[in-house]
Amino acid sequence: MRYALGVEYDGADFQGWQQLGRSGPPSVQAVLEKALSSVADAPVSVVCAGRTDAGVHAECQVVHFDSDAPRDPRAWTLGTTGRLPPSVCVRWCVPVADDFNARFSARARRYRYRLVNRPVRPALYRHTMAWERRPLDVDAMHRAAQALVGEHDFSAFRTVHCQARHARRELQEIVVRRQGEVVEFEVQANAFLHHMVRNIVGSLLEVGAGARPEHWIAEVLAGRDRTLAGPTAPPQGLVFLRPLYPPEWGLPAEVTL
């Protein structure tokens, strides 16, 4: 049987979704596979919708795995969560068709980036929000960001370590808004490049702080040169909200287009 899981995690204690080396903190994938293997009483490997970096969180990461173990979805959900550290849980489990793939069946991914915008750094939300001391013009950032909507070559916003075969992506929506001291960026695309969201946010912050004009974002995009863009925003403000799938897969509404 093939199953899909919705997984929530706080990325502060992990080196990312995937293990990058033998030393240091574990990966989310490693602790999830260990817990699933314990429930199945056999080795289990998972495939995720989108890998996240160290310090990045997920509200609903979707993974798939195969197992012959006679377990119902409730047993996979509760049994696995009971074997996971407090920073990770399985929200739901759904049996899926054998050709479902958490990565390749997804049609879009959605991320949210939050930061506290005030002169003093945050204490309470330091693991889940970034901090920007400079006053930010949210309207200017939102207007500037609309130049990124559509299908473009996003080479200017990918890390040099990105392993994607090409940099063309379709950015479907980007919204910048403020709620009191919190500034929020929400982005949806068919797929993302390594550090793409954090590099976009870092560049928009230059516009919001008045260091660059609004039209600069369009110029950076057209230049296709990472050295022309702004710095990479810190990881703790980023949350992978969810991937999105066609309805025929029968997944929960929160991950269905």
Rank of each mutant, 00 (worst) to 15 (best):
V187P: 05
A49K: 00
F65R: 03
V176S: 11
A102Q: 07
T52M: 09
R178E: 01
R103Y: 14
P73R: 08
G6S: 14
W131N: 02
A167S: 12
T52Q: 03
A69N: 08
C89G: 04
L124K: 10
P231I: 03
G202K: 07
Y3E: 05
T52H: 08
A54P: 10
T159L: 13
A102E: 01
N190C: 05
M129Q: 13
E214W: 11
V62L: 07
E151Y: 05
G50T: 05
C93I: 06
Q29G: 13
H57Y: 11
R103L: 14
A229D: 01
V175F: 12
C93V: 13
C93K: 08
T80W: 04
V47S: 11
Q163A: 11
V160T: 15
L148P: 03
S37N: 07
Q179S: 15
V88E: 02
V63T: 00
P95T: 07
Y113H: 00
P252H: 08
E181S: 15
R107Y: 07
D137K: 04
R242I: 12
I174T: 09
R74F: 05
Q18T: 05
L78Y: 11
A58S: 10
R83F: 09
S105I: 06
Q146A: 08
P95H: 02
L20T: 07
W92E: 12
A69K: 05
A35T: 05
Q236I: 07
C93H: 08
V255L: 05
P213F: 14
S203I: 06
Y245A: 09
F185N: 00
C93G: 04
H127Q: 15
M141F: 01
R177P: 12
Q29E: 15
R22E: 11
M129L: 09
T227N: 04
L136K: 01
L241Y: 15
G223N: 10
Y9H: 08
V28Q: 06
A35V: 03
D13A: 12
W76C: 00
Q172D: 06
T52A: 10
P243Q: 02
V175A: 14
P135D: 01
G210S: 02
T77P: 00
N199P: 03
G230D: 02
R242W: 14
G237C: 02
A49Q: 02
V62N: 00
V176D: 08
R51M: 12
V182L: 04
D41W: 13
L115W: 07
A40Q: 03
V201N: 03
Y3P: 06
F154W: 06
H127P: 12
Y125G: 10
A191N: 10
E170D: 08
V63Y: 00
I200D: 01
K34W: 15
F100V: 13
G55L: 01
C89P: 02
R110S: 14
V120T: 09
I174K: 04
C162T: 11
Y113D: 00
A35S: 02
R51F: 12
C48D: 09
H64S: 01
E254F: 11
L238W: 05
E170H: 11
D139F: 02
L228Q: 15
Q15M: 09
F65N: 06
P85Y: 12
V175M: 13
V88N: 03
R74P: 01
A30I: 05
R224M: 03
W131I: 05
